[in-house]
Amino acid sequence: MARAAMIIDLNKCTGCLACVEACLRENVARYTGDGRYVLPEGNSVFYARTKPVIATGRNVYVDSRMYFVQCMHCDNPPCALVCPTGATYKTKNGIVMLDHSKCIGCRACIIACPYGARSLYRGVLEGRPLHRYALEPGYPDKCTFCVHRGSTSGPAEWTPACVEACAFGARIFGDLDDPSSLVSRLVREGRVVTLAPELGTRPKLFFVPPARSMPRTRRG
């Protein structure tokens, strides 16, 4: 069985935010029909499905000032656990998805996510979404690993928009259960960390910490 996963290599990330812009273009922007694309009002970056954050100190898990907040596609997703209608669910290939047609908007998933990965846009968006899993106002939006480019049951062989946009190869996407994939190899070699592993959510978004911290990370 395939298990889609992503790795963000913080050694290679320059903070150019091309991934954020690509995510906004792919999943958040709407086409108005007259050649214009519109974004949410206010701080649009907050509604990107991968949100850059810069800490005043270093994050204790990734040992870096800058990292990204986005859906971790946990193996044990707390958001799916608390969802009363099953609107938040895990696909066969391990992607945590939101079924808009079942979501009642109780926001329990926003409360339950320990990573702050879900955001709710309550403004008005003119135009039509670019695909069926794009941001819809009033729903607790989240990263889908751009599954509209691939499938919810097959192997993780597509390329998410953020991965495609990264000029430095800092984002790697692949199948955790495929021993030959780079994602699987890096995880197997213990070169990656996750945010808050002690919570037992078993995230599938991994970070490669900056090189200077590697020995300490390995020992940890």
């Binding site: 009002e41 206010g42 907050f46 926003i110 409360i111 955001s119 709710l120 846009y121 309550r122 403004g123």
Partner: peptide, 12 residues
Amino acid sequence: AEPSPLYALVPW
């Protein structure tokens, strides 16, 4: 129809 990050940060 007022966008605010508060709806996600403190939703209840």
